[in-house]
Structures are given as structure tokens and as C-alpha cells.
């Protein structure tokens, strides 16, 4: 841990008027845990007492005061996942990794933890590894998940998505399909919309693979530009109801044919998205 790094994190958040939790979150994402010296620095720099900082850091389960591994596996033990056999999944993780929940493998590669509901109960049993969600996990799949994680999940998930995560979407107003089979991206039909930005107006195609962020467009769009998305059939704006969890730009929403809504961030280059499936099509 470097004091200057921590101090710069703290100062940046203080300039933005952020609270204690965002500071701790960023420190944790940098070091995978909250080093004691960092907590001391936070207390000193923000004028809080060490007791308060320590109290907050120990209150939330997502903060860890012990060093964690490179990869974090969270197995959901919430009620819905539990009745669908989450404990067998957790046991299998324990067996494969050789550590109990709350522990880290000696080689500092994996940390295992159990959590109480990830808010995706319909997909249970759910496990989250390095921010990637795995649904309907069976013990037999655990080994593969761990192997994929070692290989790098960003690639592995792309492969897995080819198999089971193609989003078939339609306009929320006219309900006509936005899928464009004539112009496949990533090997499957793309999603076609009309994009408007900075007085330019043209088509835009998105990959329908969940987890892929490939975009093609008629005109180049600079990163960070906010784009308005329209239905190519009824020309209604595909306006989302919420704001991007990553950058707080307005969201664009589309109906998922299998039941549910997918929202994506309207900022070019931002990967923020919300997938809310209420059907059991997945």
C-alpha cells in the first residue's frame, strides 16, 4: 500500500463531496481489502475518528479487513438459492478451492464468501465471480467456473454467452423486434436502432450477446458522447427509467422477448447496464 495513492483517492472523493463508503470502496477495489494503515489515513485526512471509520468498515460485509485473493467467488445462500441447492454449490467451491467461506487460498488466487441474496433469485442458485454472474449453478459446473476464472473470465464469459445469453429485444412502444438477422455481429443477429448525437443521425448496431460490447454505427461516435436511441420502426425514443449505475447517464431501455427489460447506458464507451429478467426463459 502506498500512502500517496490512498491520499489521492481520499482527496478525489472529498472534492466530489462523497461519503466515507465510496472512499472505502475504492480503496478496497484497489488493494482487494482495507489495509489498517489506509483506514488510519482515511480517519486522519477526513477528520473522522478512527472508531467511526473502523465501525463502518466492519459493519458492511462487502468490506474486508483481511487481504483477499485475486478472484472473489460469492455464492448466494439467500432463501431462494438455498432451496435450490446453494449449499451443495458452496460445498463444492469449498472442496475445489480447499478453503471455507470467508477464507482465501494460500496462493492468494481465490477468496470464497457466501452472501445473502444477490437480487437475482429467479436465476438461482447464483454465484458471482469477479463481478460475473453465473445462474442455475450446479455442483458439476463449479470446477469449470474455477478453471474459466483462472483463464480470465472476460474471455470465458464471451464464449459461454454464445451458448445461452443472446438477448432478443424489441421496442417498448411498438413492440416490433429490433433484431437484424441480415447484419450479424458476434455471429448472431444484431440489435438495430437509430442513434442521434451531436446533430448527427444514423443507424447503430449492437451485439445481442449479453456481455459483449461490440457496436457498429453509420457515423463514428466519440467515447463519452451521450447518444439518444430511437426505435427504427416507430421512431420513439427508447428512454430508460433510471440512470447508469456506473456513470449516471440516462439509460436506454428495450424489452427482452423472453420477459423482462434490459437497460444500457447511453454514454458511448460506458459498459453500464441493467438486466432485469422476470420471466424464466433463461
Amino acid at each position: 500500500m502506498k500512502a500517496e495513492e490512498v491520499l489521492s483517492i481520499i482527496d478525489r472523493h472529498q472534492d466530489q463531496g462523497d461519503g466515507l463508503i465510496s472512499v472505502l470502496e475504492e480503496i478496497q477495489s484497489k488493494y482487494s481489502y482495507l489495509p489498517p494503515e489506509a483506514l488510519k489515513l482515511v480517519a486522519e485526512r477526513t477528520g473522522r475518528s478512527p472508531v467511526d471509520v473502523y465501525g463502518v468498515a466492519t459493519f458492511y460485509k462487502s468490506f474486508s479487513l483481511k487481504p483477499r485473493g485475486k478472484h472473489l467467488c460469492s455464492v448466494c445462500m439467500g432463501t431462494a438459492c438455498h432451496v435450490r441447492g446453494a449449499s451443495a454449490v458452496a460445498q463444492e467451491f469449498t472442496r475445489q478451492l480447499g478453503v471455507k467461506p470467508g477464507e482465501t487460498t494460500p496462493d492468494r488466487e481465490f477468496s470464497l464468501e457466501t452472501v445473502n441474496c444477490l437480487g437475482a433469485c429467479a436465476l438461482g442458485p447464483v454465484a458471482v465471480v469477479d463481478g460475473h454472474y453465473f445462474s442455475n449453478v450446479r455442483s458439476s459446473r463449479v470446477k469449470q467456473i474455477i478453471t474459466d476464472t483462472r483463464a480470465g473470465l472476460d474471455d470465458a464469459e464471451r464464449r459461454a454467452d454464445l451458448r445461452d445469453f443472446i438477448l432478443n429485444v424489441s421496442c417498448s412502444r411498438c413492440n416490433r423486434s429490433l433484431m437484424d438477422p441480415d447484419h450479424p455481429i458476434d455471429g448472431s443477429p444484431s440489435i438495430r436502432v437509430t442513434a442521434a448525437f451531436e446533430r448527427t443521425h444514423g443507424w447503430l448496431r449492437l451485439s445481442a450477446l449479453y456481455g459483449s460490447f461490440t457496436v457498429e454505427s453509420e457515423y463514428p461516435i466519440r467515447t463519452d458522447v451521450l447518444v439518444d436511441f430511437f426505435c427504427p420502426h416507430c421512431h420513439t425514443e427508447l428512454q430508460g427509467a433510471s440512470h447508469c449505475p456506473l456513470c449516471s447517464a440516462p439509460m436506454v431501455s428495450m424489452i427482452v422477448r423472453a420477459g423482462g427489460i434490459v437497460q444500457i447506458c447511453s454514454r458511448r464507451g460506458c459498459r453500464g447496464h441493467i438486466l432485469d429478467l422476470n420471466g424464466s426463459g433463461f
Binding site: P36, L39, S49, P50, V51, D52, V53, Y54, G55, T58, F59
Partner: peptide
Amino acid sequence: AKAIGFRNRGERRSIGTPF
């Protein structure tokens, strides 16, 4: 002084100094 405070939560809640 603010030397002591609550730590953890639920069943594991306790009083003491940081660390």
C-alpha cells in the same frame, strides 16, 4: 476521547478500540 466504539453488526457486534 472517542477511543471506543461499536464494531461489526448483528451477532458479532461488539465494543472496543479500532483493531
